[in-house]
Amino acid sequence: MPRGFDDTSATRPSAYERPLDEDDHLLRLIARHDESAFRRLVERHVDRAFALALRILNNQADADDVVQDVLLKVWTTRGSWQEGKARFSTWLFRVVTNRCLDLRRRPRTEDMDAAPDLADGRPDAVTTIHRGEVSDLLDRAMGRLPDHQRIALILSYHDNLSNPEIAEVMETTVSAVESLLKRGRQQLRKYLRNAELDILESFTKD
């Protein structure tokens, strides 16, 4: 397991790197096999974890599998949480993100016939306007970004994490996050500007 959980369940020293929060107290109870505490922890975080996985994978079944697997690991490795280290929410976002990236990198040849054609799958501009699919247009543009740029933008815009928090989730530096966000925004503007030109051209055709 990434940082946050380790292979030992020993009691930690009293001098922690940060104050303990509700999640830490729940994890203490979970270490004592308290199932109600585990359910409470899941209730606190499952929706945001699933939303993050879904934005990365764009597949509900895969997102659900990732989140269930990660939360199951919390229970099966109970007692190994390192208090005072990473916040549980940060650890959870990091592990969900990494699991999603691993899943995206796996070859999925069995789905190739059913996969949409990326070049021709976009609806025409007029249809987009008629359906009010502005968010869909943005999702498509986000989907064209490199994984790390897209994840940085998701964590910033959708989850409202600060740059230092994003750096902790992605296990990188704040300056690297700033670079990812800058390049991601530039690419988004480029994609959306091209889409806008397509829309304008559709109204000038005979």
Rank of each mutant, 00 (worst) to 15 (best):
Asp147Gln: 04
Glu83Trp: 02
Asp47Cys: 03
Met142His: 12
Phe93Cys: 02
Thr128Leu: 14
Ala86Asp: 11
Leu52Ala: 08
Glu43Gln: 12
Thr77Leu: 06
Arg122Ala: 14
Gln60Ile: 04
Gln60Asn: 05
Ala115Arg: 12
His130Tyr: 11
Thr127Ser: 13
Arg140Trp: 13
Thr97Ala: 10
Gly84Glu: 04
Tyr157Asp: 14
Leu153Ser: 09
Arg55Cys: 01
Phe93Thr: 02
Arg122Ile: 07
His45Cys: 06
Ile56Arg: 01
Arg122Tyr: 15
Pro116Ser: 10
Ala86Gly: 00
Arg108Tyr: 12
Arg78Pro: 01
Arg44Ile: 05
Glu43Arg: 14
Arg94Val: 01
Gln149Glu: 08
Thr128Trp: 02
Phe93Ser: 09
Pro116Val: 11
Cys100Val: 08
Asn163Cys: 08
Asp64Gly: 09
Gln149Thr: 01
Arg48Leu: 01
Arg108Ala: 15
Val70Asn: 05
Arg122Cys: 08
Leu103Val: 08
Gly132Val: 02
Asn98Trp: 12
Gly132Phe: 07
Arg44Met: 07
Leu72His: 11
Asn58Cys: 02
Gly143Gln: 07
Arg108Ser: 13
Asp139Val: 04
Val42Glu: 15
Val66Met: 10
Cys100Glu: 04
Leu54Met: 05
Arg105His: 11
Leu72Met: 08
Asp120Gln: 15
Asp147Asn: 11
Gly143Thr: 00
Gln68Leu: 10
Leu57Tyr: 03
Gly84Ala: 10
Leu153Arg: 15
Phe93Ile: 02
Glu133Phe: 09
Leu71Met: 14
Thr128Ile: 07
Thr128Gln: 11
Gly79Trp: 01
Arg140Gln: 10
Leu57Met: 06
Arg78Phe: 03
Gly143Pro: 00
Arg48Trp: 01
Tyr157Trp: 07
Val70Tyr: 05
Ala49Met: 10
Leu54Gly: 00
Ser89His: 08
Leu71Tyr: 05
Pro116Thr: 05
Trp81Val: 03
Gly84Tyr: 09
Leu103Pro: 05
Asn58Lys: 09
Ile151Tyr: 01
Arg87Ser: 01
Ala114Asp: 13
Leu52Glu: 02
Ala152Phe: 04
Ala141Ile: 06
Val95Pro: 00
Ala86Asn: 05
Phe50Ile: 00
Val42Gly: 08
Ala63Tyr: 05
Thr109Val: 13
Trp75Gly: 06
Asn58Ile: 02
Ala152Leu: 03
Asn160Cys: 12
Ala51Cys: 03
Leu118Ala: 14
Leu101Ser: 06
Arg150Leu: 00
Ile151His: 06
Asp159Pro: 01
Ala86Trp: 11
Asn160Val: 07
Thr127Trp: 12
Arg104Phe: 01
Pro107Asp: 04
Gly143Ala: 07
Ser80Thr: 15
Phe88Arg: 04
Arg150Thr: 00
Ser135Ala: 13
Ala61Leu: 06
